[in-house]
Design a protein around this nucleic acid. Structure first.
Lengths: 150, 150
DNA sequence: GACTTATAATTGCGAATTACAAATATTAAG
DNA sequence: CTTAATATTTGTAATTCGCAATTATAAGTC
């Protein structure tokens, strides 16, 4: 059995570092890697509730609640009560939050493209397609983990 | 410019979850994801010093020092003074530490292979080769980040 | 409608993690 | 021998984390 863990251990480490570096470089002290994940996911989903984002990120809901609170205090996230169910809060990015999110996007993309630019066109496309493929497979496989069956 | 951040954001998230899940499943309470990274890197390098491991992981040396201390207390890591320079501590895994590391390796590999098993042989090999390729490119590109020039 | 149960989110709390600044220990340089 | 440099640890305070308990709202039952 080939040792694929090696590959992914390095991959996750590298990306983790890149992620922190980005938070420092492009957002100063105003955001942490975890918070960057949260902004990303709020932006991605359509009118998500707290549970939905926390679930997607595999975060404990109480930890998530506090992180959201600080993001609200910073003015990056807005909580809107669900019109049909007052228990639920709909999360959305404020214009400032969206600005930060776009900033991160740009910075990370630039860095990644700089890494990818050392490859040939063919390699680059293969790599991108491969990761897409892998993510899909992963999603199917781990969906049972983060969204408990009941 | 294609949005490659998307891919890597999901990738790192998925692997992060998988990593935590592994720490819970295969090691119980006795190890955290950060500590798993440390064991991995100690095992990988040849008679590494504290600085070398902390540098490779991009960790603050004081945080690293404390994490190593808890790993020593748990009996997974050994610190040996460098014969020629008493300031330096050489890090190594104890038999128990190596056991844990092998355990993690096996568990993560099994899970990853389960994910990869949904692909065709060709896809699988392409994915593995691609990640290898990308790690190499990343390594070259970020080496300046984690090992500051001086 | 009153009462119980279920769900969404927050808060109390203690433990673990983090990083800056300062201290310690050892070696190297002049 | 004194000073500067390097490796590691400790003081300390802020942040993060997750379990248990709490609050607030909604849904189900009689």
């Amino acid at each position: 059995m080939e040792n694929v863990r090696n590959l992914f251990q390095l991959l996750s480490r590298n990306f983790g570092l890149l992620n922190e570096q980005c938070c420092d470089n492009c957002c100063g002290q105003e955001i942490s890697p975890v918070q960057s994940h949260i902004l990303y996911e709020i932006n991605r989903q359509h009118q998500p509730s707290m549970q939905e984002i926390a679930g997607a990120l595999g975060m404990d809901i109480t930890t998530f609640s506090r992180q959201v609170k600080t993001l609200v205090d910073k003015g990056f996230v807005k909580k809107t009560p669900h019109p049909a169910d007052n228990r639920i809060n709909i999360l959305s990015l404020t214009p400032e939050g969206l600005g930060i999110e776009n900033n991160i996007n740009l910075t990370v993309n630039t860095q990644l493209h700089s890494v990818l630019s050392t490859m040939t066109e063919f390699e680059r496309e293969t790599v991108i397609r491969s990761i897409k493929l892998f993510n899909d497979a992963m999603q199917k496989s781990t969906s049972s983990c983060c969204t408990p069956p009941k």
